[in-house]
Design a protein around this nucleic acid. Structure first.
Lengths: 210, 210
DNA sequence: GTTGGGAGACTGACCAGTCAGTCTAAAGGG
DNA sequence: CCCTTTAGACTGACTGGTCAGTCTCCCAAC
């Protein structure tokens, strides 16, 4: 089986090209947005050729979707892990917010693509996005419903609250993408978490504030 | 001076065409987004002609900006009025949220353009948008800072809170644009206002809840 | 008959995607 | 060991279509 050898030797080069294309595409899309980006930009930035790009991808759209799906999957998985070892509303919210914020901070270009570009992309792009957001809403909502059941917070429209939270987090990250503030982004972690918890009626012990 | 007569007689027809073009443009942009929209779509939808469109507007971009600026100015003005007659954090927040939500509800297509399309449009489009958002942040922040001074709410990062609020409101509207829920949108008014107030540590009197 | 508003055919730039062909490296054969 | 063959990664000139914006012509109202 020469395959085993190939798996270690040859594919390195092969995957390298694909990776370079994706990395450059992320740069270009983040800078110009999907529609203003031209495939030749990606070609130039990646130091490959148009042929190479279309050897690995079927279309400009598919490059975009690969980028977005890969990243979304990564974040979703990290979220799963981070939350898995948390118990109780505070810990869960802290873990979720920290994972999201730190991830966006570490992947600024992808953050811009996911938060700014993706929503405005064509209808074909929206299915996956809405599904993903729904998943995130369900997770957050789960925390809240459990907290309500446990009497930790008053009964309320937890679905709306979950959406409001996502909007709040997204906007904080968007501000950072646009203005660079705050620097570093994860400065918002503590106050933002406090704000979110407080919004659903969770009363932080006065001592813990500040 | 025939001008005075023209102002009443002729311009009616003239303004009517311009108005029709703008209205159709709003429809088309809201449905397809700026880049996927084609000027001929607007021509067709407006029942005019390409000549008419380029008689009234310099470019596709300018049509978009007209739409967005007009609407933003309207909303900003309504906001000003609504808030002018409010005193105290609760009333101010209620007035702001109600004005925004009701306005978006009444102008679904424009809401989509402003909230979804505008952020992803090219850099040339962003100056005005950021300025406008900054203004809104300042207003909200003003409420919060005053409430802090009055000892109504604890000291905190009011700028971040203002951004979080805008994000929350935007996301609630975006959900409505994408899924139609809640129907009608202004159902969220009371719970959303409560959530926002609560997030900054304003404790609603238990009697007032529900 | 002049003019301002409008119609719509047309132009030219631009760009996603294709394709005929090159280059490299490894396999096979003598 | 060469030398040939083959596969498959990669190249970039090219094509076909699209679309913003222009230009010429028209007509209705003075």
């Amino acid at each position: 089986m020469a395959t085993a050898i190939e798996r270690l030797g040859r594919p390195t080069q092969r995957e390298e090209t694909r990776r370079k294309i994706l990395a450059s595409a992320a740069q270009v899309f983040a800078e110009k947005g999907f529609y203003r980006s031209v495939v030749d930009d990606i070609v130039k930035a990646s130091g490959t050729s148009k042929g190479a790009v279309y050897f690995y991808f079927d279309s400009k759209e598919q490059i975009f979707m690969s980028l977005v799906e890969d990243y979304a999957a990564t974040v979703a998985q990290e979220l799963q892990i981070a939350v898995h070892r948390s118990r109780g509303l505070i810990a869960e919210v802290e873990a979720t917010v920290a994972t999201l914020i730190r991830n966006f901070q570490a992947h600024r270009t992808l953050a811009r693509i996911v938060l700014v570009d993706w929503p405005a992309a064509g209808a074909e792009f929206q299915g996956k996005r809405i599904a993903l957001k729904t998943m995130l809403v369900e997770v957050l909502r789960g925390y809240l419903d459990r907290a309500v059941q446990d009497g930790k917070i008053p009964a309320q429209d937890t679905e709306m609250a979950a959406h409001a939270w996502i909007g709040a987090i997204g906007e904080i990250v968007a501000r950072w993408l646009n203005t660079g503030k705050p620097n570093p982004l994860d400065e918002v972690l503590a106050p933002l978490t406090r704000l979110l918890l407080s919004s659903v009626g969770f009363v932080a012990s006065p001592a813990a504030a500040r």
